[in-house]
Design a protein around this nucleic acid. Structure first.
Length: 861
RNA sequence: GCCACUGUGGCGGAAUUGGUAGACGCGAUGGAUUCAAAAUCCAUUUGAGGCAACUCAGUGUCGGUUCGAGUCCGACCAGUGGUACCA
């Protein structure tokens, strides 16, 4: 017969989810007496169903939201959808389903799944970036930025598939080939839309210092990504005319190492440098070389890893400080037109890339920096890139590298051959895409008037619905009527911009929409001022650079366009790790965990019992099939178990290994607690008895209050795994006291412990907590009860354990009274009388005794 | 290639931020309960040596600073994230 009192997670979870929804319990409140707290998790791309990564990040955010409510805050905790993007177009191409329909279906499904997790969102604030209202607001913002000259159109490289005649994303380029056609990918220049993020480069670096609640590693990565450097733009004059009609008389290079100028043995220019183009006009070999350079994709990784190649132009330039020295000029595939001036001078002895190039081209390698401390800076083996003393450098000899830098910059400026220059690695943000499923760029291109913004009254510019995906390329380009418009300026026939925005634009400002998602204005100043910026943003470390940098830029730009009055998008940031799982490979490829059977430490295919190779744990991904569907777990064990497992064991910032047995353990734990609560009769609370506790009762109370302190601190510090450990430890203590049925222990104290336990468990496993709380107190919901407070007087023990070390190695421990903590003489006397200490000392007098009060005594012999 | 992070028992991890390494959990082993099993409960569980008290070794590798290093510094090895059009 089935036990009526058995833990049925499904029933409990459905019951409370319904109840919470009916009471609208998680609506953002505006109690005047409470402080406001905005907790935001990165919104998901609606791929179809939630994955374990979602379960993890949304559980982390939910714990914080519920904890903040319990500690007396008005909490804004919203959810929405990053609804534009490529997968919808791929689905359209593959399954002949319209991206809008596919996306809507996915959102509905994922919303149901998120609701099954019991997340405390205010769903009234939900929106998707593909909503017409969001599109309209984004287009308004874009036009404001355009009018401020923060957006502009220029030509830029894109990956080009010559067979499919279409632009490819970096992801669609696999080993330099198009993913569908398999053709070698080329680069092609297209007119595209840019944001002037470089206008804010200094500010984006400098204000990182203000972000005290951001992880250091993210700030370091952003700083390096922006890559500010101080250097010199220096001109090298060309020895003779390149051609009769060429006006180019010199090459300007950018360098951060002007101190090594006398070690320079060549110049290298980018394949798309203006000078390269002139030279190529009458040089077929160079033309072929440029073509080859353009075969490398556009990604930085590809450009850096490519074999370093150069082409000698036969042009010579004069060394600016050595009268009779001429240097050869090469076109090199590792020089980028987008950085500095698109030209460099090469110093093989002190730059590894120049060194490799010089070896290949048989160019001289001349050492000009010497460092006595580095044992060997053997320039015949590798470049020496550090600091040191300048040698072989005429008037610079004897200076330090820093002094020489300043000297060369000054002398170059005096002689009018160079200028001091600040340079950034960061370049402007290319924010347009040649795709359908995105927010249209609200611009009209007119042959007579040029670039004309769409009039505000004509917004939003929505996507046409009647498109097909059977043709290759951007459907907006093929659409005959949508493109055709009359120019708002001159009234003549004109064409719509057919590009759409990068989805990073959508996510650069979405946190500002949640406080008032239905407002006609892009930003509701009053509400945004009240809630924004979010106190805590939670998301994956994979967004550490791009998304967060773009959001920071947008916030600064929106401040300057007077939309908002703050300049950083997120006060606090937390980056969680990925969810990983072992991989399984059978004779026919990868297998899902559900398809295999484990026997000992071997794995077998359920179907035919063939042995499976168990691979190391990797990020859950469709391609490796090492995925566990969260809904399977929720259906089998319940959302509370899934949530608890996500929080146990792994610290949130680290990768988490999914393990079936770990989930099982969490479920058993909840079941144990459930059974205990249903078999146990709780006494009424009586404060007098509590405050009068002595002996075992006192130490139990001390235990309870220490657990409260430990769990609370851990939650405050985002160490949820430690919080879970502290809470479980508390339950062990309470259960042990019960099982021993010690008459000495007062039931009121046990009740005090269980109440604290349930309240602290509630942010993690809200459903079972609510149900069990109902047993203790029928009149109140958990949201009506505030977080348990640790009583300071119960946090200290009378006795302290001291560690006794000899030469730093533990030999013994002693218990001392709290009041003897600082009585060094008394303690040392006790220690020197301990048997094993006497034995180890062997009548020798200690050289030194180091005593750290309350912690350790170290005897040095 | 470059930037950033991570490395502790059989496994996931803890360690008051330089002061008793292994909290909490998983697994394993033994026991209780049961006709039996599941479930549950109890005990043990870093390795080596010892009947035992205990001794020695031990936090990716090698070296350094310190009375004392998982924690700080240097070099290396391995894995992960990002690398501007995946989100």
């Amino acid at each position: 017969m089935e036990n009526k009192n058995a833990y049925n997670a499904k029933l409990v979870e459905k019951k409370w989810q319904k109840f919470w929804q009916e009471k609208n319990l998680y609506k953002a409140t505006s109690n005047q007496n409470k402080k406001d707290y905005y907790v935001l998790e990165m919104f998901p791309y609606p791929s179809g169903k939630i994955h374990m990564g979602h379960v993890r990040v949304y559980t982390l955010g939910d714990v914080l939201a519920r904890y903040k409510r319990a500690t007396g805050f008005n909490v804004l905790h919203p959810m929405g959808w990053d609804a534009f993007g490529m997968p919808a177009e791929n689905a359209a191409f593959e399954n002949k389903i319209h991206p809008a329909i596919w996306t809507k279906k996915n959102i509905n499904n994922m919303k149901t799944q998120l609701k099954a997790m019991g997340l405390s969102y205010d769903w009234d604030l939900e929106f998707a970036t593909c909503d017409p209202l969001y599109i309209e607001c984004q287009q308004k913002i874009f036009l404001s930025l355009y009018k401020q000259d923060l957006a502009y159109r220029k030509e830029a490289w894109a990956n080009w598939d010559p067979v499919d005649q279409t632009v490819l994303s970096n992801e669609q380029v696999i080993d330099g080939k198009g993913w569908r056609s398999g053709a070698l990918v080329e680069r092609k220049k297209l007119p595209q839309w840019f944001f002037r993020i470089t206008d804010y480069a200094d500010e984006l670096i400098d204000s990182l210092d203000k972000l005290s609640n951001w992880p250091n590693q993210v700030k370091i990565m952003q700083n390096n990504w922006i890559g500010r450097s101080e250097g010199l733009r220096l001109s090298f004059s060309i020895t003779k005319n390149i051609s009769e009609n060429s006006k180019i008389k010199e090459i300007e290079v950018y360098t951060t190492r002007p101190d090594t100028i006398f070690g320079c043995s060549f110049l290298a220019i980018a394949p798309d440098h203006p000078l390269t183009k002139i030279c190529a006009q009458k040089d077929n070999d160079l033309k072929a070389f440029i073509k080859e350079c353009n075969k490398v994709g556009t990604s930085e990784e590809a450009l850096e890893k490519v074999d370093k190649k150069g082409f000698n132009t036969n042009i010579k330039v004069k060394h600016p400080f050595l009268k009779n020295k001429n240097l050869p000029v090469y076109v090199a595939n590792f020089v980028l037109m987008s950085y500095g001036t698109g030209a460099i001078f090469g110093v093989p002895a002190h730059d590894q890339r120049d060194y490799d190039f010089a070896k290949k081209m048989n160019l001289p390698i001349k050492q000009v920096v010497e460092n006595k401390e580095s044992i060997k800076n053997d320039i015949l083996q590798e470049a020496y890139t550090g600091k040191g003393k300048i040698i072989n450098s005429e008037f610079l000899d004897g200076m330090s590298t820093d002094e020489a830098k300043k000297y060369i910059i000054n002398i170059s400026e005096k002689q009018h051959i160079g200028t001091r220059s600040k340079q950034f690695r960061l370049h402007d943000w290319c924010a347009s895409r040649q795709r359908y499923w995105g927010c249209p760029v609200p611009i009209i291109l007119c042959d007579h008037c040029g670039i004309v913004p769409v009039k505000e009254d004509d917004l939003p510019v929505l996507l046409p619905e009647d498109v097909t995906f059977d043709k290759i390329g951007n459907p907006l380009d093929h659409h005959q009527t949508w493109q055709k418009v009359t120019c708002p300026e001159c009234g003549r026939e004109a064409k719509r911009e057919t590009q759409t925005f990068d989805t990073f634009v959508d996510s650069a400002w979405y946190p500002l929409r949640y406080p008032s998602p239905k407002s006609k204005e892009p930003i509701d100043k009053k509400e945004v001022q009240r809630w924004c910026p979010p106190q805590q943003y939670v998301g994956g470390i994979e967004h550490a650079i791009l998304h967060l940098l773009y959001a920071r830029f947008f916030t600064k730009a929106l401040k300057d366009t007077k939309y908002i009055n703050f300049d950083e998008p997120f006060e606090g940031l937390f980056c969680q790790g990925m969810v990983c799982h072992k991989t399984y490979k059978g004779k026919d490829g990868w297998l899902e965990p559900s398809e295999i059977e484990l026997k000992g430490n071997k794995a077998f295919n359920k179907k035919d019992q063939s042995e499976i190779i168990i691979g190391r744990s990797e990020k859950m991904s469709k391609s490796k099939k090492n995925i566990v569907d969260p809904m399977t777990i929720i259906n089998q064990y319940g959302a509370d178990t899934a949530r608890l497992f996500m929080l146990s064991d792994s610290p949130p910032e680290r990768d988490l290994d999914w393990s079936e047995s770990g989930v099982e353990g969490c479920w058993k734990f909840l079941k144990r607690i459930w059974t205990h609560f249903h078999n146990y009769k709780f006494d009424e609370e009586n404060l007098e008895i509590l405050n009068d506790a002595k002996g075992d009762n006192l130490s139990l109370r001390q235990n309870i209050h220490k657990s409260i302190k430990e769990a609370t601190n851990s939650i405050e510090e985002f160490k949820y795994n430690s919080a879970v450990a502290a809470i479980r430890k508390l339950s062990n203590v309470l259960l042990t006291n019960k099982s021993k049925s010690n008459n000495e222990i007062t039931e009121q104290i046990v009740l005090e412990g269980w109440k604290a336990f349930i309240l602290m468990l509630a942010p993690m496993t809200p459903h079972i907590a609510e149900e069990l709380w109902n047993i203790l107190d029928k009149d109140k919901m958990i949201t009506d009860v505030s977080w348990p407070q640790a009583n300071a007087s119960l946090l200290q023990n009378n006795n302290i354990t001291l560690a006794i070390q000899i030469n730093g190695k533990l030999k013994n421990t002693i218990e001392i009274n709290q009041s003897d903590k600082d009585n060094k003489d008394k303690i040392i006397k006790i220690i020197l009388n301990l048997d094993n200490i006497k034995k180890t000392l062997n009548n020798n007098t200690p050289k030194k005794i180091i005593s750290i009060p309350g912690k350790v005594v170290n005897i040095v012999i």
